[in-house]
Design a protein around this nucleic acid. Structure first.
Length: 292
DNA sequence: CAGTGGCCCTGTCTGC
DNA sequence: TGCAGACAGGGCCACT
């Protein structure tokens, strides 16, 4: 599924292939793909048609494009969810099975297609923050910056994390605290930091919290470096087949495989209707949570 | 108000 | 062979 590196690749693709182009026609083929648009699919299409796309931006896994011309003051926002793809395709390419939205451009060139099998992703045209050159949509004002953002505040994050009364993996997935960290990166950051996913945040020392942040930033930086090279440059492509997952991950998806630090078999535990992968030796269960 | 848990969605895989 | 259920999981929202 698209993670932060793939989303960043998509952002770069949008910047390369659709920036400066004027939208001539919008087709919504599945209403759920624009469910964030309060007034519906027709309104989405009307707000987008005739606008000019600006420079693509990203925060965590959210993408957006400030709109110019008829769309000034608004942005096209997108989230890929689990299975979303934004493809720049020649109009002659047959429609994908799960094509949800199509944008045609006034120049008659390649069209932009939103393809999404599981429909957790979606697009919307939303009002942007006033006087913000990046056109940040109002609806994501509460989303924290991600650790690859130069304006991410490390000290504030460490303090806020330790002030939380929850467990550490929940906190890592809390988008108001830090964005861009999903289940995979959470497990990887915890493995690198030798922390159990149920460790209470209030018991983290300042150095442990700082190490956790450095670990999250490190794994995402490494993934971006690899993910950035595994896509066809002709497309704004998310093909879900990038190779770094199996090669570089230390915990996620490695149940029964040896821990790369100590050799102990990695375990998978059900957690929040998901899974947590961890080394039972390197990442000890906190006393309060191990039931004796 | 902060924290918690359920739900959305569909294709693939496993087990009976 | 066929069907049921588990699983993938980010973000929203109702509830405590």
């Amino acid at each position: 599924m698209p993670e932060l590196p793939e989303v960043e690749v998509v952002r770069r693709g949008l910047a390369n292939w659709v920036a400066g182009r004027t939208v001539a026609d919008v087709q919504v083929l599945h209403p759920r793909a624009v469910r964030r648009q309060p007034a519906g699919a027709a309104d989405f299409a009307a707000r987008l048609t005739g606008t000019t796309l600006g420079a693509a931006q990203r925060r965590g896994k959210y993408l957006w494009v400030p709109l110019g011309g008829a769309g000034a003051g608004f942005s096209l926002i997108g989230h890929l969810g689990m299975s979303g793809q934004l493809l720049v395709q020649d109009p002659s390419v047959p429609d994908e099975t799960h094509l949800r939205v199509r944008l045609r451009f006034a120049d008659g060139g390649r069209e932009l297609r939103f393809v999404d099998q599981r429909t957790f992703g979606g697009l919307a045209v939303e009002e942007a923050e006033e006087d913000d050159p990046e056109g940040t949509p109002l609806s994501i004002a509460h989303i924290a910056r991600d650790p690859l953002d130069p304006r991410f505040d490390d000290g504030a994050f460490v303090a806020a994390l330790r002030a939380k009364r929850t467990t550490v993996k929940r906190a890592l997935l809390d988008q108001t605290l830090i964005s861009g960290v999903g289940n995979i990166y959470a497990d990887e950051a915890l493995w690198r930091s030798k922390l159990h996913y149920e460790r209470p945040t209030a018991t983290l020392t300042r150095p442990q919290a700082a190490l956790l942040l450095a670990s999250a930033r490190g794994v995402m930086t490494a993934a971006l470096a690899v993910g950035g090279t595994s896509f066809d440059s002709l497309y704004v492509n998310v093909n879900g087949e990038s190779g770094y997952f199996s090669r570089d991950l230390d915990a996620y998806g490695r149940e029964h495989e040896p821990c790369r630090r100590c050799g102990t078999a990695i375990r998978r535990a059900p957690w929040m209707n998901r899974s947590s992968y961890f080394c039972p030796r390197c990442q000890r269960v906190p006393r309060a949570a191990d039931g004796g």
